[in-house]
Design a binder for these strands. Structure first.
Length: 486
RNA sequence: GGCGCAUUCGUCUAGGGGUUUAGGACACCUCCCUCUCAAGGAGGAGAUCACCGGUUCGAAUCCGGUAUGCGCUACCA
């Protein structure tokens, strides 16, 4: 590689930042950072009809959340701007006009209605759909006449009728496409905006992009882009098509599969380091065993050659596992900070307690190794924050015990606990473990009764630590309530 | 329909002619630890490498065909 690496992430602002797109950005970013090259963020807002307000902001937010930064872009500028395609229309128009003049493109006056009819006819006759080239050889006069009628034309590329356009993809190797299977695609729409094909080629050249790293779905249109480079006299970049992310049904991952926005995953309580690592492993691998990698390790080890060819299903279970791993790696301070927004979102919980930093910090170690997501932390710790536990009295009854035995056990525990002045895990255990024996119960039986009384759940963090954090007052109150329920 | 591409445990993958009785991870099962749930540790089960032919002394690995899947086939990207 002699020329500097300049790659780009070029989303169209038509919606939320899809995890598939974000992964594309990530691969671009990894190559840029691995090679010391540049990542350019370019907004392809050429589809006026599908443009969504706020999409650019959401995309940037998604990228930033994962720590994917860019060296040039609409917000920070750069030497190759502007970075909104809507601000570069003149460039595309010039290119299109030049192609027309050279005889590589032409004006087409066909109405949408005619095109639709034409396509319907082709489908009916089981012919490959494509523009029938009606306007390809219009004379200047004929063009002028239509122009006079007020028809605003599109500019179409004059695709060679024969020959083939081969290209070498970094990942797929040689791909050969017969030109005869390509139709005369639109370069410039009648509203003056370029299509993806034209804008992409013009900008990638103008911005001196070295590698086009994009999803596999673009393979089929790459020959079109190559043909354009040729006609324009530009040197094409290297093409790197990576496999796509699939839903459980093996179709391209889309909204109907559930959460697809990277921001959804943030809101569900996945850590950015998890998402970064997990996404990097879809369609790319380092070796036969390394899976957990930091962003820096990924940068150091990334290589295009190790991107695979097969689409991969987004495996939520593995994501959950990995997020658990990353949650456990957090320091106490990091975990505390990470958990804040999720606790705040939990409206049922007592507001005052949630802002009691000392209390929250005491609770968190009890759930850190149990939570798969940050959102789950709120769920797992809820009983620490509420005034009133809400559970079914039947849960109190211990294993192989009846209501009377349970009542007796709980009462005995209450008596032992009441005089305790030190309410720490060791003191609690020192009192309660012998009590179980006294009552002729297994430790687990007594503990589980207490656990339900104090937490309202059958599964919770270790009992003594939990009680210690809750504090004597809260525990005694809850035991009192439980006794009344029996 | 046409064109392109792909196909290794349920899932993500390693492996690119003999080192493979196909390795790892998630999920699953068993056991250990244990006051529950997790976490952790030790095991287990799970893939005739889509199928059929060919090349070769030898193929998951090379070639051809078939099947299946996916993508593209817009004045969307």
């Amino acid at each position: 590689m002699t020329q500097p690496v300049r790659v780009r992430f070029a989303p169209s602002p038509t919606g939320y930042p899809h995890v598939g797109n974000i992964r594309t950005a990530m691969f671009n970013w990894l190559l840029a950072r691995h090679t010391g090259g540049k990542l350019i963020l370019r907004i392809e807002d050429t589809d006026v009809a599908r443009k969504v307000e706020g999409a650019v902001k959401a995309i940037m937010e998604g990228l930033s959340w994962l720590g994917i930064d860019w060296d040039e872009g609409p917000d920070i500028g750069g030497d190759y701007g502007p970075y909104y395609q809507s601000q570069r229309l003149e460039l595309y128009k010039e290119a299109a006009e030049r192609l027309v003049e050279q005889g590589d493109a032409y004006y087409c006056y066909c109405s949408p209605e005619r095109l639709e009819e034409m396509r319907a006819g082709q489908v009916k006759l089981k012919q490959p759909p494509g523009y029938d080239r009606l306007c390809r050889d219009l004379t200047r006069d004929e063009c002028a006449r239509r122009e006079a009628e007020g028809i605003r034309p599109v500019v179409r590329f004059k695709t060679p009728l024969d020959g083939q356009t081969p290209y070498d993809d970094v990942i797929w190797g040689r791909v050969v496409i017969e030109n005869s299977t390509l139709d005369d695609f639109v370069l410039l729409k009648s509203d003056g905006y370029p299509t993806y094909h034209l804008a992409n080629v013009v900008d990638d050249h103008a911005m001196e992009i070295s590698h086009v790293i994009r999803a596999e779905e673009w393979i089929s249109s790459t020959p079109r882009h190559l043909l354009l480079y040729q006609a324009l006299g530009f040197e094409p970049p290297l093409y790197v098509h990576h496999p796509m992310i699939l839903g459980p049904d093996r179709a391209k991952l889309s909204k109907r599969h559930g959460a697809v926005s990277i921001l959804d995953y943030r809101d569900m309580g996945y850590l950015p380091q998890t998402m970064f690592n997990f996404l990097s492993l879809i369609g790319w691998s380092l070796d036969d065993k390394t899976e957990l990698m930091t962003r820096q390790e990924l940068v150091d080890n990334f290589s295009l050659e190790r991107i695979g060819k097969t689409g991969a299903i987004f495996n939520r279970e593995k994501l959950d596992w990995m997020n658990g791993v990353y949650i456990r790696k957090l320091t106490a301070d990091e975990f505390f900070a990470a958990v804040q927004p999720y606790l705040m979102d939990d409206l049922d919980a007592g507001k005052a307690l949630i802002s009691d930093e000392e209390y929250v910090r005491a609770i968190l170690p009890l759930v850190q190794e149990r939570a798969k997501t940050l959102l789950e932390v709120a769920e797992l710790t809820r009983f620490f924050f509420v005034d009133q536990l809400d559970y079914d009295a039947g849960l109190l009854i211990g294993k192989n015990m009846d209501a009377a035995a349970t009542l007796k056990a709980l009462k005995a525990a209450q008596d032992k606990l009441t005089p305790l002045s030190i309410f720490d895990p060791d003191s609690l255990e020192a009192v309660l473990r012998p009590l179980a024996a006294e009552l002729g119960l297994k430790a687990g039986q007594l503990f589980s009764v207490l656990r339900v009384a104090v937490t309202g759940r059958v599964a919770a963090p270790p009992l003594f630590a939990t009680m210690a954090v809750l504090g004597k007052e809260r525990c005694m109150k809850r035991i009192e309530v439980a006794l009344k329920m029996l």
